[in-house]
Amino acid sequence: MSKLTHCTELLHFTPDDYWQHISITDQSVCQQCRTKPCLTLCPSGVFTWNLHKSEPVLVLYKQCVECGACRLVCDNINFSFPCGGYGVHFVEG
């Protein structure tokens, strides 16, 4: 079991199936991006590289922990908080 799976299995979510709160504004920018900080920075691995698609960055928004770090390191990421009641919820403090 990977370290990331260990972490995401310890999270509680109410996923929103109708609205995605994070998106990539222009996927072609990602092809040119040399550092790709989103792939390592995200504490729950929302951004995954996918070579075979015209859209190289998959956004697994349903496992987002809503820290908002991604929006501060990349202007191409369109981040907002999920709608009321949706998203992550922490129980243990």
Partner: peptide, 21 residues
Amino acid sequence: SININVGMAIADFAASGIRPY
């Protein structure tokens, strides 16, 4: 229970490529 926490500036995470988890 106990909590283990660790963190540093977002800029340092981004520059170093260290995954938080």
